[in-house]
Design a protein around this nucleic acid. Structure first.
Lengths: 215, 215
DNA sequence: TATATCTGAGCGAGCGCTCAATCACTCCAT
DNA sequence: ATGGAGTGATTGAGCGCTCGCTCAGATATA
């Protein structure tokens, strides 16, 4: 579910009348901001830098954004949007059984891998957001987890995953998310031992063990 | 292994002659800084606030610390120190077999739980440190993981954990760490479903499955 | 002409850090 | 005993600078 224009403008204020322009400029802002934020962090990145990288003046930046935090929020929204779409796609044609689980895990891990820079950024800088938006970002994270959870449920219904109750499935979905994020946080050490593919293969084995029958 | 006075003063500069005083004042600084940093983050916390909370003036603060980042570094050192000591203690009289593993896991999780505020802080603010010290902090994190790894090795040697090769044990130790940290990052949602004890119990089960024999 | 959008010099607040002055304490010459 | 010189530690007003944000005017568009 993409965040619609009206939703956005309710949250992030602007004086500009043309909604298409707002959307276009905000995309520019996000695209310009991401590499800067990833490289220097939120606090060391200046609004002037962002404006310059986006190709217009600070004055203009502040026509599309009410404060610096808005930029971070727009970035978070955009990223979660992208993640949700990717994982949602894979889940939409999910099979049954253990191979399906493996496929889902693979996609979650790869998505996390591809977006690891921004993911790290989000983990580190979310707390710089005003409370209201921090909650929105957390809710987004939760929605992604809900996708994984749904996938697990559907796979579990097919029967060959061992007897797992509802809260098992919930906890397992978080475990999968976090094991995926682990590559983001610990790549500096893990990549000395494994490639991303090896990492996925190993972790998939462990996940399959976790969902196996009790002895 | 506690950081010795000489080691510290090599890293964090000071003009003060009396080493005991340096140690005492720095303890004060850390104790005063932690709650402020946890609550407001590194960038929103002022050096004046820290000095005031520690009970002396900014001037004095800067006699024991060369820059604001030093404070964060001292905090990280202190926390890692504490974690390492706790986990080290438990591992020093570790038994054999699966109960030993459960006991170790329990301690790692509880330690992570007790220090979750500061742990979150470290994850979020480490990148504000100068590169040289960020590396030192990462190295500390690695040393803690090494402890868990050693524990796993010793337990695995007793034989009833399934056939795990060296890199299995390494990856598993990271999994244990990260599952412990998960409680820090996702307490806001996990605690709706589980108490910390329930969480530990469930995750221990999963971990035991992960180290079990292949079918 | 009227409206929408863009510009960037400049404002003002806040913050890290300094340093001249002060205080506290020791020790020795008287 | 005591004055005072020397040393180490503390103080906090204030400097210098950065950065988020504004707004009066310029520019484009219809």
């Amino acid at each position: 579910m993409t965040l619609k224009r009206e939703d956005l403008s309710q949250v992030v204020q602007t004086q500009i009348k043309n909604p298409d322009l707002v959307e276009r400029r905000r995309r520019q802002i996000v695209e310009a901001a991401v590499p800067l934020l990833v490289k220097n962090g939120f606090h060391k990145t200046t609004t002037r830098q962002i404006a310059k990288a986006a190709g217009f003046s600070i004055g203009t930046l502040y026509e599309y954004v009410a404060c610096k935090e808005d930029v971070l929020y727009l970035v978070c929204e955009a990223v979660h949007d992208q993640i949700e779409r990717r994982i949602g796609d894979v889940l939409s044609h999910v099979q049954k059984g253990r191979e399906a689980l493996a496929a889902m895990v693979r996609e979650v891990f790869l998505t996390s891998h591809r977006l690891s820079d921004v993911y790290l950024l989000m983990y580190q800088e979310t707390h710089a957001l005003p409370p209201q938006w921090r909650e929105k970002v957390l809710a987004n994270e939760l929605r992604i987890n809900e996708l994984i959870h749904k996938g697990l449920q559907r796979i579990a219904e097919s029967g060959d995953l061992g007897d797992l109750d509802a809260s098992d499935l919930k906890l397992l979905s978080h475990n999968i998310s976090v094991m995926a994020h682990m590559w983001t946080f610990r790549r500096w050490i893990l990549s000395k031992e494994f490639t991303i593919e090896e990492y996925i293969a190993r972790q998939t084995e462990y996940i399959l063990k976790m969902v196996a029958d009790k002895k």
